[in-house]
């Protein structure tokens, strides 16, 4: 399918007094709008995503904590799946990998500004972030790739 152009560089610098001591801005990545939907076709890292590592990130309450809001049947070994968001069973049938990557990086680009889902790879445009988290995305680029690999296998 042909991409409809519109390549946007993201990853703006953090506007904060703490920015000078904080981690450097996120490395740039390209958002491609395809059929009106924002996607990130290229992986964020050269290392391919590992679905097993992704499952760990999905479960970890300090990392993805995806079960907080989503039911995922292949992870039924874990207690307490939330239902704030839709179940993720078969999510790879609903979205291609490039769109899944965009949703994990910044779901507002796909679902709109009103979504309650956090952006897992974003450091700008946030309000009153605790100093220890300033300039840091919730997940590293590699963790995003691992989660995307895990989600892409949920067919």
């Amino acid at each position: 399918m042909k991409a409809l152009g519109c390549v946007v560089g993201l990853a703006a610098a953090v506007v904060s007094p703490a920015a000078s001591q904080a981690a450097p801005p996120l490395p740039p990545f390209s958002v491609v709008v395809k059929d009106g939907v924002a996607t990130i076709p290229a992986p964020l890292t050269s290392e391919p995503g590992d679905p097993k590592a992704g499952a760990t990130v999905v479960v970890d309450r300090q990392l993805g904590n995806c079960l907080s809001c989503h039911e995922i049947d292949v992870l039924r070994g874990e207690e307490f799946h939330g239902d704030v968001g839709p179940p993720l069973n078969g999510v790879a049938k609903r979205w291609d990998t490039a769109t899944l990557r965009m949703i994990v990086v910044n779901p507002k680009k796909v679902f709109g500004e009103d979504t309650v889902m956090p952006a897992f790879y974003r450091v700008d445009g946030l309000n009153r972030v605790r100093p220890e988290f300033v300039g840091k995305p919730i997940l590293t680029a590699q963790q995003v790739e691992d989660v995307v690999a895990f989600l892409a296998a949920l067919k």
């Binding site: 809001c69 239902d83 309650v116």
Partner: peptide, 28 residues
């Protein structure tokens, strides 16, 4: 209605839009 923090959530995100749902073990 103002979002806060790295998780970018407002009071309304949970307590207006999602009460009656589970946030993991927490019933909102």
């Amino acid at each position: 209605h103002t979002r806060n923090g790295q998780l970018d959530l407002a009071c309304a995100s949970c307590h207006e839009k999602n009460y009656g749902r589970n946030l993991r073990a927490d019933f909102l």
